[in-house]
């Protein structure tokens, strides 16, 4: 059994294990069998992944083996220098910030960090930032602006942390301030949802010139569990809530909330970290090259207009 295998993935994982066990034997017969199984494997993935439900995508977005920012950084960037702390209270490990080199140019990175097993999950509070995380992000935004470097943000959080201290330190204000800063920040910003985009805690680093989303990522105002509990008073209706919320990349592209979907490797990003990273790098590079050529006042006007247009209503 492979760690964290989701129910609908089990046949894929079983087949993968059989293929792996065959690879240790090197007779012609087993090689042929392996080729056959490989073909079956690819078809199976194609069949299962072509009709994923929004809830299955939510599960993929939270997959325990899904690559997180610390997996992507060495695969996308040439160098990375982490910068710590908000200069006020502390250094929130749920948000990672720093400078990196992308295609021989410096970019600033602001990203949620969820962790991948119990010790790392705990160390970064499962990717749920406290106000000091958002204020560290705000400091880095201003730093990038001062040195005229673009910002790349990576979103992957269940949401901002709902705790006593978080409220005492003004969680709401910390998030709001980032929305305020990002909306007028004089440098290009690209946000990429790589896993879970959990409400205000995600948006706080997600106001950008271009918002990209991995194919199986989700982005929602509330978790399907929370929505089911509040609106139906019934947690068992989570699957239904996931569909109703329209939280998939495809839904959000149609609503023009995001700008582009980044395809994932067959069977999801967790099956091939390198390929997932290269796909992200390619799309980000293309957008960055375009944004760099727009002068700052025009860039800010476009960003402002983009958010002013968001909303669906009628005028009587």
């Amino acid at each position: 059994m492979i760690t964290g295998s989701l129910p609908f993935e089990t046949p894929i994982d079983e087949l993968e294990e059989r293929i792996n066990s065959l690879s240790t034997v090197s007779s012609e017969k087993t090689k042929e069998e392996a080729r056959q199984l490989q073909k079956e494997y690819e078809e199976l993935i194609q069949r299962i992944f072509s009709s994923l439900t929004p809830w299955q995508k939510t599960q993929l977005a939270r997959h325990i083996r899904r690559p997180c920012i610390l997996d992507y950084i060495p695969r996308i960037f040439d160098e990375f220098i982490e910068l710590h702390g908000d200069r006020l209270i502390g250094d929130d490990r749920a948000i990672i910030t720093g400078m990196a080199r992308l295609n021989d140019e410096t970019v600033f990175i602001i990203a949620h960090q969820k962790g991948k097993d119990t010790p790392t999950n705990i160390a970064c509070n499962f990717g749920m930032p406290n106000p000091e995380g958002y204020r560290k992000a705000a400091r880095i935004m201003r730093l990038a602006e001062r040195f005229k470097k673009p910002i790349l943000t990576f979103i992957d959080t269940p949401g901002a942390y709902p705790g006593i201290e978080a409220e005492e330190k003004g969680q709401g204000e910390a998030i709001a301030r980032n929305l305020f800063i990002l909306s007028g920040l004089k440098t290009p910003v690209i946000a990429t949802v790589i896993g879970e985009g959990g409400s205000g805690g995600a948006l706080a680093i997600g106001v950008a010139d271009k918002v990209l989303m991995l194919e199986n990522a989700v982005y929602s105002v509330i978790s399907p569990e929370g929505c089911a509990a509040i609106l139906w008073k019934d947690r068992s209706r989570t699957e239904e809530a996931a569909a109703t919320l329209h939280l998939t990349a495809k839904d959000l592209l149609e609503l023009q909330i995001i700008d582009e979907i980044i395809p994932e490797p067959a069977g999801g990003a967790h099956r091939n970290y390198d390929e997932a990273a290269q796909k992200i790098k390619k799309v980000i590079t293309r957008h960055l090259n375009k944004l760099k050529n727009i002068d700052i006042p025009a860039l800010l006007e476009k960003r402002y207009e983009k958010y002013q247009k968001m909303g669906k209503f009628i005028v009587e």
Partner: peptide, 25 residues
């Protein structure tokens, strides 16, 4: 935020904050 408008309601946080930033400016 109004859940019945999904992620679009979340975007209203960005929209209103951007407006307040303009007012401040």
């Amino acid at each position: 935020a109004r859940m019945q408008e999904g992620t679009m309601s979340l975007m209203q946080m960005a929209k209103t904050s951007a407006s307040i930033a303009r007012l401040s400016e």
